[in-house]
Computed example of a mutant assay.
Amino acid sequence: MLNTQSLSSDQIPDHSPDPFLVSRAALGDASAFTEIMRRHNRLLFRTARSILKNDTEAEDALQEAYLKAWRALKGFRSESALSTWLVRIVVNESLGRLRRKTAAVIPLDSAMNAIDADIQRSLSDNPEQHPEYAVMQTQMRQLLEARIDLLPEAFRTVFMLRAVEEMSVEQISQALDIPEATVRTRFFRARSLLREGLASQMDIALSDTFAFDGARCDRIVAGVLERANAEEFLNPKTE
């Protein structure tokens, strides 16, 4: 049980450094720990989500990790960044949940030799037979088609004939009445432009991966504070 003291939220200056927030939160200041949570929520949710592969489970793990971190704040010595320390706690909590969930996991070698048909099927099935794979392939094809359409016409035609239709450089040269060196140059340039375009789209998409909106942030903060109050975490009874 924390030895807490009541401190109002207006005593937490904007842009307070982490050490200041840690010292206040360690004394039971809910507003200081709320600020810590809001600063690190997205990083820590994505960390938990990467391990548990489920939004709801990641939120639950994050709330539990926050409570453990709050209890342990007095022991935080700032040898590493607060974010690093919190990530470690979230990782441990998430891995612990994963281990409990998969306690009966069968080693790969044993599973491949097991009699259980479902186990063998899950390991040996062709991924192309799964509906999710077909959807993924469709989305990838649509993305590639959209990027190919953006290529300059001269590059686009060479790319289609060479990469998609698999015509030889000599055949394309004859069909388009251009030197073979030009075919090679345009094909190389087309591939470079495609890679650059796809990489740019991937960078943009990565920033939105496992989106962390305001509602989720508020829900996690509220959940931690509610549990802390319910457990007399913030305001323990005094004799």
Rank of each mutant, 00 (worst) to 15 (best):
S173W: 10
A228W: 06
S23W: 05
K68R: 13
L151F: 14
N92E: 14
M112E: 12
D149Y: 02
A134Q: 14
P13D: 04
L2K: 05
E64A: 09
T209K: 04
I115P: 02
R216K: 12
M140R: 10
E232Q: 08
L2G: 04
S94N: 08
F233M: 09
E145F: 04
S80M: 06
S83R: 13
R191F: 00
L194Y: 05
E64V: 14
E153V: 11
E166F: 04
S200H: 11
P131M: 05
V164C: 03
S122W: 08
S8D: 15
L151D: 03
L95E: 15
G75D: 12
M37K: 03
D218R: 12
N3H: 12
E145C: 01
A61L: 03
A104Y: 08
D14M: 05
R46A: 11
R191Y: 01
L52W: 00
E231H: 07
A205R: 06
R77E: 15
H40G: 04
E79K: 14
S80I: 08
I204F: 10
N229D: 10
S200R: 12
F20N: 01
A103W: 01
R216N: 08
R141P: 01
T102N: 14
L143G: 08
E79L: 08
R191C: 02
A163R: 09
D125E: 13
V135S: 08
Q201V: 07
R38E: 11
R195H: 07
A32G: 11
L143W: 07
L225G: 03
Q201I: 07
S200D: 12
R100A: 04
K68Y: 11
A111Q: 12
V183E: 00
S192F: 09
S83M: 07
E57C: 01
D149P: 02
P179N: 06
S8V: 05
Q137D: 02
I220P: 01
G214V: 15
Q11L: 13
E166M: 08
T157M: 06
W85V: 12
A146I: 04
R77Q: 14
D208N: 11
L73A: 10
E57V: 00
F20R: 01
L52F: 01
Q63P: 03
Q139H: 10
Q171M: 12
G96T: 00
R162P: 00
E166D: 09
T209G: 00
T138K: 11
E35T: 14
F187W: 08
T47L: 08
L143D: 04
H130L: 13
E35N: 04
T34C: 14
S168K: 01
D203R: 13
S16N: 02
F45Q: 02
D55H: 10
P131G: 04
L95D: 04
Q63G: 14
I204C: 03
S78I: 01
R42M: 13
E128A: 15
N3Q: 12
E57F: 05
L108V: 15
F76M: 06
E231V: 03
T34K: 09
R216Q: 15
D109A: 14
D55Q: 09
E145S: 04
R39H: 09
R77M: 07
T209S: 05
I106N: 06
R219P: 07
N126K: 03
M140E: 09
M167W: 12
T47N: 10
A26F: 03
F233R: 02
D177N: 15
I172A: 00
A25S: 13
